[in-house]
Design a protein around this nucleic acid. Structure first.
Lengths: 152, 152
DNA sequence: TCATAAAGATTGCATTTGCAAGTATTGTAT
DNA sequence: ATACAATACTTGCAAATGCAATCTTTATGA
């Protein structure tokens, strides 16, 4: 074995250099942090995502709402069930179609939104705190490129 | 409203520019692709990760094996149960300690490994195909920086 | 040495998840 | 107008997940 060769297995090299793997590690770590932050509020990640989407646009049908965050129908139903239970959200009958509802934040729901923005800022901040501003720009460019390629 | 202002809500801007959010989208998309690839092999993502780890190092205890992929003890037990059921893996009694097992690939298990490397290459390749080689280097540097900061 | 704690692994049980099937309503084509 | 397909949403049920308790074995300290 030559002096310069590394004593790592090929498998190790593959895993540690895998973008997919690193993305997963990062994602798991972010999820854990978000969950921890959301715990005091009694919110799951799905419920959080739904509330953020409602902060962006109210009055959509369940399907439209769910599709914004790639949430399947059954999960959308259940997430809204839970948020309705907490009085953060309400279903209103659609005026044109009796098979769909339009989803709105309640006043009570509106009060929790600002705290959610704070959490997002905090978690993203931690994530990015080790990067230079050049690197942040690079990462954003790269992410957008990848995500765009996947969904267009 | 000035000519140059964009007609998007603040919420939308926050979500679409959130690194955490984009990481999650990317991760979900990767997971779905991996699951699809692994389906013919009858493997879950956890089982896949365990087999890849075994390709990297055999003869570890369950706990050691699980800790390499941040898998909690109970999940490690169950993943190994399933892989043992498929005859891809076997538990051998530890010679020094009667409370632990050492985990090894079986011959049959070894035959599936090459296919797993192919899948990893394929999925990572798709992920990165839209990036220039400079961008790939940048992404790797950035990922390593973030992941290192989180776990050291 | 003996009690007590810690480590390694497993499992019971409740919750979550996801598929597939269900209901009700609306759209489409003959 | 009628039959058939598609849409919107819900739900039953089985599998996956996760917490906490358990069992066994090993380590630690007085």
């Amino acid at each position: 074995m030559s002096k310069s060769s590394k004593t790592v297995s090929p498998a190790k090299t593959v895993r540690e250099n895998s973008f997919g793997w690193m993305t997963k590690i990062l994602c798991a770590s972010l999820d854990a942090e978000m969950r921890r932050e959301l715990k005091h509020l009694g919110l799951s990640l799905d419920q959080f995502a739904m509330l953020m989407t409602l902060a962006e646009a109210e009055g959509l049908t369940q399907t439209a709402l769910g599709s914004r965050i790639s949430m399947p129908g059954y999960a959308t139903t259940r997430t809204i069930d839970a948020l309705e239970e907490m009085r953060y959200v309400e279903r209103r009958k659609d005026e044109r179609s009796r098979r769909s509802y339009r989803i709105y934040l309640t006043d009570q729901g509106r009060t929790v939104i600002p705290g959610l923005f704070v959490i997002v800022k905090k978690v993203n901040g931690q994530l990015l705190s080790v990067l230079s501003s050049d690197e942040k720009k690079q990462l954003m460019t790269i992410y957008k490129k990848i995500v765009t390629a996947r969904f267009d």
